[in-house]
Structure formats: structure tokens, C-alpha cells
Amino acid sequence: MPTTVTGLVLLVVLLLPGLTFVIIRERRGSERRPTPFRETGAVVFCSVLTELAALVLFALARGLMPGLTPDVGRLVREGLGYARDHYAQLGWWAVGLLLFACALAAAAAALTAGKPHASAMSAWWVMFDSWFPGENPLVGCILEDGSYIEGRQASFNVSSEDSPDRDLVLVEPLNYRPPGETETHAVPWGAACISARRIVTMFVSYPPAPGRATRAAAVATQGSAPAAS
């Protein structure tokens, strides 16, 4: 770890593109919990690649516009003397190249985070996003006390683990059947939050759309099976 403020700032700057990559992937895809080694490796690897790409861009700019770019050779030879005389130019180019590396990392994260690998999908992610993305299906849940609740899926925990410590949010129209009863009744509330720990069986009904049967058949052919939390 860095022992000076300058070293700490330099470390943060060097790893900023990789941190950008990891954060955007977490926001746009299924939440994963990799080991510290893998997460650190992803940050460092992405930072190195994007900053190398930024340096290649600088080299091209230096070859095409030598008068508008810092002279790296003089910077190496003269050190702080050259940096003091050209601090504004050095600062603008450093910030610009860092922003370019971060933008490149963000673009890579956005392109690769749309659909996680099957090994990183939870049953909820498969039902609510993987099969028919962008839709809010009708969801019915049988709870452990025998009651039943039904509504439109509004939000769900995107963790890649099928953990009972997460929640599902359903919105109106909501229907509820108390324990021991046989009739389902509409309720006047706008939303309901259900703990996965209380769900015994989950049913999902997708809105009808052209080609839905064909797509569902293709999913079944690939060996995917509906999952219940």
C-alpha cells in the first residue's frame, strides 16, 4: 500500500478505469460476489488495458500534432523543470487521457454486462430478465403460511445467489388469498414487498406477444427449466 499522499493519489488514478468498469457492470447486470483476488484482478487488468489504449492514442496524437502535445522526452530528461514550465499542458493531457480510459472502460462494461453467464444467474434473474427482458410479468406466490399473493413484478433483488435474504416487490393490481381460504380477493394497496424466505412456490405469467411461443420453445429446447424460489 502507498505510504504517501502522492502515492495514494497515483494509485487511485491508475486504478480508476478498472473501478469504473466494475461499478458499471454491477449496476447493469446480475450482482456477483467474486473473490477479492478475482475482483482485484479485474480492476487491474481493465485499468492496464484501457490506459495502454490511452497511451496509444497519445502516441498517435504526438506523431500528428507534435506542437500541441507534451514532449515526453524532455519531461524524462528535465523532470520537474519541464513540468513546471508546461504544467497546464501536462495537466490537461493527463486528465483527458484518464477520462478517455474511464470512458473506454465504461463502454466495455456496458457492452459486456447486458446478460451474465448462465453460471452467474439466479432463478429470479432467469425468470424476470433472461427469458423475456424488459417486461413486468404477472407473478403469483404461495407463501409458507398457505396464503397466496399476486401482482405485477416491479423490482427484484439481482443477486446471483438464490438467497432467502432478499425481497420481491409486486405492484397493483394486487390479489390476495388469506391462509385457509379458497377465494382470491383484490386488495386496494399499490405495492407489496415479499421476503424470499416466505415464498414456497412462485408462478410467472408473461404478457402475450408475437413470437412468444416460438421463443419459449427455443428456451425449453436449450435445456432451461422454470425455477421456483
Rank of each mutant, 00 (worst) to 15 (best):
A108G: 15
A106D: 10
P116M: 07
H117V: 06
A108P: 11
P133T: 10
G114E: 15
T112D: 14
K115D: 15
H117G: 13
P133I: 09
V126R: 10
A107Q: 11
F128D: 08
S122N: 00
M127E: 15
A113T: 01
S130R: 10
G114A: 10
A108Q: 08
P133L: 04
A107C: 13
F132R: 01
A109G: 09
A109E: 14
A105V: 01
W125L: 01
V126D: 05
A110P: 07
A118G: 09
A120T: 00
A106M: 04
W131L: 15
S119P: 05
A106S: 09
F128V: 14
F128P: 00
T112Y: 06
A113I: 02
H117M: 08
K115Y: 08
A107V: 13
A120E: 12
T112L: 11
A110N: 11
F128L: 14
V126L: 11
L111P: 12
W125M: 00
A120W: 12
M127F: 06
A120S: 10
A108F: 11
S119V: 04
M127H: 10
A106I: 04
P133E: 14
G114D: 14
A123D: 03
W131Q: 14
L111K: 06
A107L: 15
L104M: 09
M127V: 10
W124Q: 04
H117Y: 13
M121W: 10
A108R: 02
W125Y: 12
G114S: 13
D129R: 00
H117S: 15
L111V: 07
A108E: 09
A107M: 12
F128T: 11
A108C: 11
A123E: 06
P116Y: 03
S122R: 01
A106V: 05
F132I: 14
W124L: 05
A120H: 15
S119R: 12
M127A: 15
D129W: 00
W124E: 07
A103S: 12
V126T: 14
W131R: 11
L104C: 09
T112C: 10
M121F: 02
K115N: 12
G114K: 05
A123N: 02
V126I: 14
P116R: 06
K115S: 14
A109Q: 08
V126W: 04
S122L: 03
A110L: 15
A105P: 05
P133N: 08
A108T: 05
M127N: 13
W125I: 01
A110G: 13
P116V: 00
A108M: 11
A109D: 13
A123G: 02
V126P: 00
D129M: 01
S130I: 13
A109N: 12
M121N: 05
L104K: 02
T112W: 03
S122Q: 00
F128K: 06
W124M: 06
A106T: 08
P116N: 07
A118C: 07
H117T: 09
P133V: 10
A110W: 12
T112S: 15
L111A: 13
A123Q: 01
M121G: 03
H117R: 15
A109H: 03
S119W: 09
A123M: 02
V126H: 05
A105S: 08
A106E: 09
K115P: 05
A113C: 07
L111N: 11
W125K: 00
G114W: 03
G114T: 09
D129Q: 13
A123R: 07
S119Y: 08
A103G: 14
P133Q: 08
M127K: 12
P116H: 03
F128Y: 11
